[in-house]
Design a protein around this nucleic acid. Structure first.
Length: 748
DNA sequence: GAGCACTGC
């Protein structure tokens, strides 16, 4: 059951009596469930939405005496879910939240010595395991929402499986109980993973949802960009022909959603007008966009019921599939696409792209229509598209993401054989090797794969290794105050607001430029630091944000992150192993030199025109993103470092600053010392004796090296089509490139 | 001359 479901249930049940709790589908299974947990060390419990497993099972186990020799811990993939469920259960158990029933999420620990049932995020349990690998406080660990396959839950699966397989845990093995709770579909795979452990099925209570294939998208339209129009058409048809009931539309991003809402708004008015002329009554459409970067108060609007005579139509991203639940939805319109981040380990690049959803995800989306009554799901795609283009299951996060932090965590838990670690879905070996390489490069592990003193310091920070390395460098100089706010700013959502209206858009751009100018318009990192400091120092930080088109919500969380990082650092600085160095130079140089020590794998040098070439051994061609303050200043630049790469119409680097070659000269050879494939021995916990290869700085190309040529070379050099393919698909989607055209190597 | 889905420590 997802967090939203819990919220819904919360609202729903508050009005009803305890009788309703007794009538939950799970209540008839109380004794059998208790006996199953007693009998088996690991048990899988599946149940559809509304079965009550999240709120009731921990209480049953508590009543059966499982909390006598330890606490009952329940993990959730999201913060809100952990908090709202804990609230609900504390009410049901008639105790004060934080006493008998508590929760722990980042920045908010609401537990006490009396806590016997503890809800928490899976990330929190991971942190706890780092301090106590035997989880000695717990009698039962329940991993909820297992079907979502979040990165942390997947790692917890492997750790718990290993826990029961290892000989060293002795008595502890007999006392710890593990329950994995999941929606149906994935339970077979999970059961096999846990040595064919039993699966307990609780029937759900949902209503039937019929599916209509509208056949507007077929297998040949995998890269179609026209589906916003199709979605709008389906919504209008539905609105005119189907009886009352609210609509939920799934699209992929902010821009699409705004476009769809505009079209709907025009057309809905047209319908009203036409029907008025014919003197027929038709309820209007209340159109509500919904996406993550929207202000929270605006998001709340979707929870209000539509005024009488109006039909609510929520046009949302995937946020409506897991994080937020809209009540009373009777119709779902599914575009069949989702925006997904994937990682290309060969060139160390993240690609954010629109891809067809999986069949299981499509069923989840459709299910949103059957919560309060029977419903209908209109898929804009055809049955053929379903069969040919949609995979059975979504690729789990662990196979789509950079694994540096995960691998360092495993190493810190003394799991050195990171390749043969029991993964439910094993990541490709090169993902693991790339992670090891990066950890070696930032001195978190040594050549034998052992965690270094620095690595042990780094694991304490909830940051990517590169950023942690920069932070520790600054702290070793005694100047952490320059890196702490920056690390915080880089950990939160994008702080710059991009308004929808063209007028406001221009005003926002000017205000953002003003902020960049104050630090000399030459360093995006310094701009972020400046924003943090200015905002914090202002009389009213929230109105400061409004004036400068900055997300106040993002800044608020940056302030919390900075405090947390400061606390961790203060604790670690007492450690005798904490490095101490001297630095004399300007603030600007200090900042950039610290960044270099963490981001030297993200160094690029201008090769020709506005084209840069990365120095990480891949030699990828990159451009400065237009959102950077250094955009169109390329000719004045030579060496740069960047925070991240994004592949859209070109391979762009975002958040950039110029550096001097001398600052990275001694660091760059490290990038070429170890070949990824030599690391497989290290991964398997054997010694590796690689030959050290000296770095060769590529000669700067003359201006004759056109962009066209550079693209061609990138393609050959990397021998990797996926980045180019992603770019092609992007261009096709935006209608810049026609399907099947042979112009991949040409730059406009 | 773009345009970032979502979540977590």
């Amino acid at each position: 059951m997802s967090s939203g479901d819990e919220t819904r249930k919360l609202q729903h049940q508050k009005m009803s009596s305890d009788l309703d709790t007794l009538q939950l589908p799970i209540s008839g299974h109380r004794e059998k469930l208790i006996n199953a947990v007693k009998k088996y060390p690991i048990l899988i419990v599946t149940g559809e939405t509304g079965s009550g497993k999240t709120t009731q099972l921990p209480q049953y186990l508590h009543q059966a005496g499982f909390a006598k020799h330890g606490i009952i811990g329940v993990t959730q993939p999201r913060r809100v879910a952990a908090i709202t469920v804990a609230q609900r259960v504390s009410e049901e158990m008639n105790c004060q939240l934080g006493r008998g029933v508590g929760y722990q999420v980042r920045f908010d620990d609401c537990t006490s010595e009396d806590t016997v049932i503890k809800y928490m995020t899976d990330g929190c349990l991971m942190r706890e395991i780092l301090a106590d690998s035997k989880l000695s406080r717990y009698s039962v660990v329940i991993l909820d929402e297992a079907h979502e396959r979040s990165l942390n839950t997947d790692i917890l699966f492997g750790l718990l499986k290993q826990f029961f397989h290892r000989k060293c845990h002795g008595k502890r093995k007999a006392t710890l109980k593990v329950v994995v709770m999941s929606a149906t579909l994935e339970e077979k795979k999970l059961s096999e993973f846990f040595d064919s452990c039993p699966v307990y099925v609780i029937p759900g209570r949902t209503y039937p949802v019929s599916t209509v294939f509208c056949n507007l998208i077929g297998p040949e339209d995998k890269e179609s960009s026209a589906y916003v129009k199709d979605v709008v058409k389906v919504v209008i048809d539905l609105h005119t022909n189907e009886p009352a009931g609210d609509i939920l539309v799934f699209l992929t991003g902010q821009i699409e959603i705004e476009k769809a809402c505009d079209l709907l708004y025009q057309k809905a008015e047209a319908i009203d007008y036409n029907y008025d002329m014919q003197d027929r009554s038709l309820e209007g459409l209340l159109i509500l966009p919904l996406y993550g970067s929207m202000p929270t108060e605006q998001q709340r609007k979707i929870f209000q019921p539509a005024p009488p005579g109006l039909r609510k139509c929520v046009v949302a991203t995937n946020i409506a599939a897991t994080s937020l639940t809209v009540n009373g939805i009777r119709y779902v319109v599914d575009s069949g696409f989702v925006k997904q981040l994937s990682y290309n380990s060969r060139v160390s690049m993240h690609i954010l792209e629109v891809v067809p959803i999986s069949k299981s995800e499509a069923l989840q989306r459709a299910g949103r229509a059957g919560r309060t009554s029977s419903g209908k799901c209109f898929c804009i795609y055809s049955k053929e598209f379903w069969k040919k283009c949609m995979p059975e299951f979504t690729v789990p996060e662990i196979r789509r993401t950079s694994l540096t932090s995960v691998i360092l965590t495993l190493k810190c838990l003394e799991i050195h054989d990171v390749i043969r670690f029991p993964y439910v879905d094993k990541p490709e070996e090169r993902f693991i090797l790339e992670a090891l390489k990066q950890l070696y490069q930032c001195d978190a592990i040594d050549r034998r794969g052992q965690v270094t003193t620095l690595g042990k310091l780094m694991i304490e920070f909830p940051l990517p290794p590169s950023l942690t390395r920069a932070l520790i460098k600054a702290a070793s100089f005694g100047h952490e105050s320059i890196l702490l706010p920056l690390a915080a700013m880089l950990s939160v959502e994008n702080v710059f607001i991009r308004p929808g209206h063209p007028d406001k858009q221009q005003a926002a751009i000017l205000k953002h430029q003003e902020l960049a100018t104050k630090v000399g318009s030459s360093n995006d990192f310094a701009t972020l630091l400046h924003i943090f400091e200015e905002c914090k120092a202002s009389v009213s930080p929230s109105s400061w944000c409004r004036d400068y088109f900055i997300h106040w919500r993002a800044l608020k969380s940056a302030f919390s992150v900075e405090t947390q990082l400061q606390d961790i650092l203060t604790r670690l600085k007492n450690n005798k192993d904490f490095p101490v160095e001297q630095f004399s130079g300007s603030r600007s140089e200090l900042l950039r030199r610290c960044l270099c020590s963490g981001y030297f794998m993200n160094v690029a040098r201008r090769s020709a025109g506005k084209v840069f070439c990365t120095m990480d051994g891949h030699g990828s061609v990159v451009h400065i993103h237009p959102s950077s303050t250094l955009f169109e200043q390329e000719f004045q630049l030579d060496w740069i470092i960047f925070h991240e790469v994004i592949v859209t119409s070109k391979v762009y680097v975002r958040i950039v600053c110029p550096i001097r070659y001398e600052w990275v000269k001694d660091l760059l050879p490290k990038l070429h010392e170890i070949d990824v494939y030599d690391l497989s021995n290290v991964a398997r916990h054997e010694m590796a004796e690689e030959e050290v290869v000296k770095l060769e700085i590529p000669e700067r190309k003359d201006s004759a090296d056109s962009q066209e040529g550079a693209w061609g070379k990138l393609q050959k050099r990397n021998d990797d089509r996926s980045i180019m393919d992603a770019r092609e698909r992007y261009l096709q989607r935006r209608g810049i490139r026609k399907k099947g055209s042979e112009t991949a190597n040409q730059e406009p």
